[in-house]
């Protein structure tokens, strides 16, 4: 009986997966070529790749905060609560708040003004030069908490005497963490890189849509918004579907590459 229901639960799932397969067929590969030749699609993919540059920053910051929290004697629960809060907030809410914070007269520029750096003020999201970086910064702001909680939970489960021993031997902050903490955390860091890498390539729709809708002048157009606007605004679902297939293949290729890289790493350990 359990098996029967299992099959039923599966039915809903089949529905979803089969619908994916249906699209490429009957249209041939011509659509894919059109999409690949579209300069807008290429620049969208380029933007996704540029967003990937946020990945090392995000990971380094998360590691730093996790290590600080792990060593803090007082109040680390308060900080953890605060740092994790952005991760829980709805992305549309975050997007709308930041589209206010980052305007010409928003909080950020007023803050810059207050510390005498008013000259640096920009319309962060309204300028093609800065918009993509601003979107990246907002993503870092929101995703940071996930990494912190992940790394911290691993740090807390490590035996404290390893650190004590190293400290007694005279290891400073930098040496202690590069020689001991990082190698111990390597598997979980790898996992975090994979998850956030996938996020930055194929789950940024919510951010971009609420912050800039792909503008100004397509400066923040990413693969997902391209698919969305091709399907809705330009009413070309088959082209959108081809673009979706390209994205899907890309994501799976990334997964495979990561898996192979991790297997290699694991072998090196032996």
């Amino acid at each position: 009986m359990a098996v029967l229901l299992l099959v039923f639960g599966y039915g809903t799932y089949r529905l979803v997966t089969e619908a994916t397969e249906r699209k490429g067929r009957g249209v041939g590969l011509q659509n894919v070529r059109i999409v690949l030749d579209d300069p807008l699609f290429r620049s969208a993919i380029g933007h996704n790749l540029r967003l990937l540059l946020a990945l090392p920053i995000l990971t380094a910051l998360a590691l730093l905060v996790a290590i600080l929290l792990n060593e803090a004697l007082r109040g680390w629960r308060v900080h953890r609560f605060a740092v994790f809060l952005p991760y829980v907030l709805p992305i549309p809410v975050v997007g709308v708040i930041f589209s206010q914070v980052l305007t010409l007269h928003g909080v950020l520029n007023q803050g810059l003004d207050a510390i005498g750096l008013g000259g640096l003020s920009e319309d962060w999201l309204g300028q093609p030069r800065w918009a993509l970086s601003a979107v990246g910064a907002v993503i870092v702001w929101k995703e940071l908490g996930f990494g912190v909680v992940l790394f911290l939970s691993r740090l807390l489960s490590l035996p404290a005497d390893v650190f004590e021993a190293a400290r007694v031997d005279g290891a400073g902050f930098w040496r202690l963490h590069t020689k001991i903490t990082l190698p111990l955390l390597r598997p979980i860091i790898a996992f975090y890189l994979v998850i956030e890498g996938i996020t930055l390539v194929s789950w940024v729709f919510n951010y971009v849509f609420t912050l800039t809708r792909g503008g100004p002048a397509d400066a923040t157009q990413v693969a997902e918004t391209y698919i969305y606007s091709t399907a809705t605004t330009y009413n070309a679902p088959s082209l959108a579907a081809s673009a979706a297939c390209v994205l899907m293949v890309g994501v799976f290729a990334m997964m495979v590459a990561f898996t192979i890289a991790r297997a290699r790493l694991a072998e090196d350990d032996r």
Binding site: V16, T20, A241, L247, M248
Partner: peptide, 18 residues
Amino acid sequence: VALMVVPPVVLVVPLFLL
């Protein structure tokens, strides 16, 4: 487990047509 990484945007078009 592999299905966990499928981006939802990929499913939107076929499911919308359906």
